[in-house]
Write a protein that binds this DNA or RNA. Sequence first.
DNA 1: TACTTCACTGCAAACCTTTGCAGGATCACC
DNA 2: GGTGATCCTGCAAAGGTTTGCAGTGAAGTA
Lengths: 387, 387
Amino acid sequence: MTAATSDERAAVPVTIRDVARASGVHISTVSRTFSAPHLVNPETRVRVLACAEDLGYRPNRAARALITGRTHNIGLIIADIANPFFPPLIKAAESQARHRDYHVFVADTNEDPTAEEELVHALAKQVDGVLLCSPRMSNSLIEQLSREVPLVVVNRQVTGLPCVLMDVGQGARAAIEHLIGLGHHRIALLGGPRSSWTNREMRRAAATAARAGGAELTMLGPNAPTETGGSAVAEQVRRSGVSAVLAYNDLMAIGLIEGLDALGVRVPQEVSVVGVDDIALSRLTRPKLTTVATPTAAAGRTAVDMLLQQDIESPRGARGLGAGTALGVRRTTAQVMLQTDLVIRDSTGPGPRARPARPPAASLGPDPHCPAGPGIPTAATGDAVAS
Amino acid sequence: MTAATSDERAAVPVTIRDVARASGVHISTVSRTFSAPHLVNPETRVRVLACAEDLGYRPNRAARALITGRTHNIGLIIADIANPFFPPLIKAAESQARHRDYHVFVADTNEDPTAEEELVHALAKQVDGVLLCSPRMSNSLIEQLSREVPLVVVNRQVTGLPCVLMDVGQGARAAIEHLIGLGHHRIALLGGPRSSWTNREMRRAAATAARAGGAELTMLGPNAPTETGGSAVAEQVRRSGVSAVLAYNDLMAIGLIEGLDALGVRVPQEVSVVGVDDIALSRLTRPKLTTVATPTAAAGRTAVDMLLQQDIESPRGARGLGAGTALGVRRTTAQVMLQTDLVIRDSTGPGPRARPARPPAASLGPDPHCPAGPGIPTAATGDAVAS
DNA sequence: TACTTCACTGCAAACCTTTGCAGGATCACC
DNA sequence: GGTGATCCTGCAAAGGTTTGCAGTGAAGTA
């Protein structure tokens, strides 16, 4: 009926106008068929849909965005895509977004706070909101940026902003208790990046748990949250005389195990190691890693949900602009804390006192590195915290 | 000077019109300041830029896309983000795109060909081109989709389309020659997904190299390209009596090593294993994996370059629409083949004949599984191919 | 029959930017 | 002084969609 467009399907972009012409209605009716179906006569609707299908029509999102002010895109800003912690999160977020007819821009900052800020700016006009994962910039900057575009923060607590957090405090506590339960009393915490919220939480919780269990906790770090960052401190770990280490994440734990191995220190026979994250890799190393599993996929899904929920209330910009936008918007500032789980595998074993005297206990004394002077009361620690 | 907009920076979206008003010029001059600076008086330009900066103006990409027909976005369709092969590619592609002022949509298909097709459709109107990485759909469908949106294919050869390939053929040959050089004469190829181009290339090249080196090659598979896929065939590998295995990728190789370990078969003492990809993980397992390194980051960069290059010649749609779009476009159909490298680590060792008789050679005969009847000439194979 | 209500559809403005065209000013040159 | 060239800027249309408003016709009510 129309021009010779039927053959060259989709060679020339087909617009709402073509569909209107083909189905004999006005473009506004076509528009409503897609964006407000209940307003159009069922008969008309099926006819329009048939024509649209036939012509291969797909709404132009740029045009739609221009008038509605909503792009149906969200931004996902990640410190390092190659860090195996993130892909499951990205995957889950992308999938969840797609189910709600959103697309996801992924951007990698290479752990650079400056890049983070620039990316938020660059994406701001192009997306309906941004997910900031394990950000390295300051809280105040995040707050400031959140005035430019709706933000949801993952792995960082920012007052006044919706956050998705993983309860690494609980995880660290469980890990320390597990180690104490195995008979370890001198434990090191292998810290991660200084600007990491997770890092602070872990320190706090681990210290409390160690004190409660009567163990001594040595803080090492900060370190790069990578395999190299872990292997680099192997020597330091050995010298410190601890019998167990809780690492900031699995990559560091694996690196540490490598490094200790190179020094001839066996895991878990001589030193027990616990990681955090439960990345796929942690099941594949030898020994298999004992670790605190963090719900990364759930975090991705939840963050998308929170962003979209917050976003739906405030159609930002476009028609209803003017005053009131800044204060009228009642933003969802819920902060969700997701549970973590200690997964016990093969990198943790009995501590020095619980060990059935395989290396003759007298050879080096009970603990060669412990001054044995102003020590910590070591009695009855193992079971006291096992409850 | 204008209304009280200076305080509420970016609370209300600031458009080209605000900048025009603030700097006392027409909106078209502002537009040109950004998109064609050489057309505007230097004095005017700095004034406009100052105002824009001051107001926090950022061009609305949706509006720009609407008129130019170019979104400055590209789509990246990936079979499985959680497969450690892909993140380096994604990272490189995203970085390269960003340098050219493009953003990247990442989509995960969960290895589902149907999802692939849908995603291309969904993204078509929203991006200037799509990178299809290790697609699982048919070549003919890919060709068809390429009429809808510019496509660059990674890890698949499609005639008439720009492709980025990794020379796994060369890699497989090097791996087989390496194994033969170590004295292995019965080798298995652990195949991957049937629809994988890489898989076919490897089979072809490995078969040729084995024949040339006088070795016997057993084909196993197809299998899922995962750790589980690898560990599942451990028993089959043992029964087959081969002394070396070339796996479709590192994940399968690692899985296989795990599986063999569970059966009490030691790597590399009893069976040598070679992977493909050189994912970060392959340096962390024990034994460290001998593998064919594929240049994933380079592939990501190259693919983006090819897409953008092809895209620049054809401003698709918009103003110059009408006839000729389908045939007038001289598309770049270059196919780039990237080199691979064999990285020798600890998962390969001497074959049965080269082994210095640690397990007494007479105990089981030269090869318990070889019928020794219609065998392959075994003389002088080790060095013959080492050249 | 006259009036109201309702369901549906068309009209046209608006979103923000780009860009072909034309007009104005300035300058050089004959 | 006239002519032309050059440089800069403004005008206005265009791109595809959404949406408030108004109009149409039919059904329901008094």
